[in-house]
Simulated assay, not measured.
Amino acid sequence: MKEATVQVHLEQGLHARPASLFVKKANTFSSEISVIKDGRKANGKSILGLMGLAAGHGSQVTIQADGVDEEQAIQELSEFLLLEHEVEI
């Protein structure tokens, strides 16, 4: 299992459209993906789970991946959260 702790730089945080894009990217990996914020853990492949974390701009989250492509998953999902531009709706 690999993990990385990152600060959410997405202008909108992980809400609605950004959460759906994160889930879409997470689903390209065979690894199990989890996102943790303030001790609460959500399935990284679930829009509702991610939105339930209420990870707004500036929040710190930990991404965990467990599986054959865990390193690539951590890298790409971390980069997604570090985007400083607004995600188009």
Rank of each mutant, 00 (worst) to 15 (best):
A73V: 03
S30H: 01
T28Y: 02
G49Y: 01
A73R: 00
K25C: 06
Q7E: 11
H9S: 15
Q72N: 09
G58E: 02
T28M: 04
H9Y: 12
A73H: 09
A65L: 04
I36A: 09
F80P: 14
E84H: 08
T62V: 01
A4G: 07
L14N: 10
M1D: 05
E70R: 00
Q72D: 11
S30Q: 09
E86L: 14
S20D: 07
M1A: 15
E76S: 07
G52C: 06
K41L: 13
L14T: 11
A65V: 03
E3W: 02
Q64P: 03
A73Q: 08
D38S: 15
S31G: 12
L81K: 05
E88Q: 09
K2G: 11
A26T: 05
L50R: 08
S31H: 05
D69I: 00
V6P: 13
E70A: 03
A16I: 06
E79G: 11
Q12D: 14
K45I: 00
L77H: 08
I33C: 12
K41D: 14
F22H: 05
G67W: 07
I89F: 07
E79Q: 14
G13I: 08
A42T: 09
K2A: 11
E79C: 07
L53D: 08
I47H: 10
H15G: 03
A16R: 11
S31D: 08
V61P: 13
Q7L: 01
V8K: 04
G67L: 02
S30M: 01
D38I: 07
V87S: 10
M51L: 02
Q75W: 00
F29V: 03
T62Y: 01
D38Q: 12
A4D: 10
Q64K: 11
P18K: 02
G49V: 03
L50Q: 12
Q12N: 15
T28A: 04
A65T: 09
G67T: 06
N43Q: 06
V87G: 12
S31M: 02
S59H: 04
E70G: 02
H9W: 09
L83E: 14
F22D: 09
E71V: 08
N27V: 04
V61T: 13
S59N: 03
S31R: 04
L50H: 07
A4H: 08
A54K: 14
Q7I: 10
E86D: 15
G39F: 02
G58L: 03
V61C: 02
K25V: 00
M1K: 10
P18C: 00
S78A: 12
Q12P: 03
L50N: 08
S34Q: 12
I47L: 06
H57L: 05
K41S: 15
V23E: 06
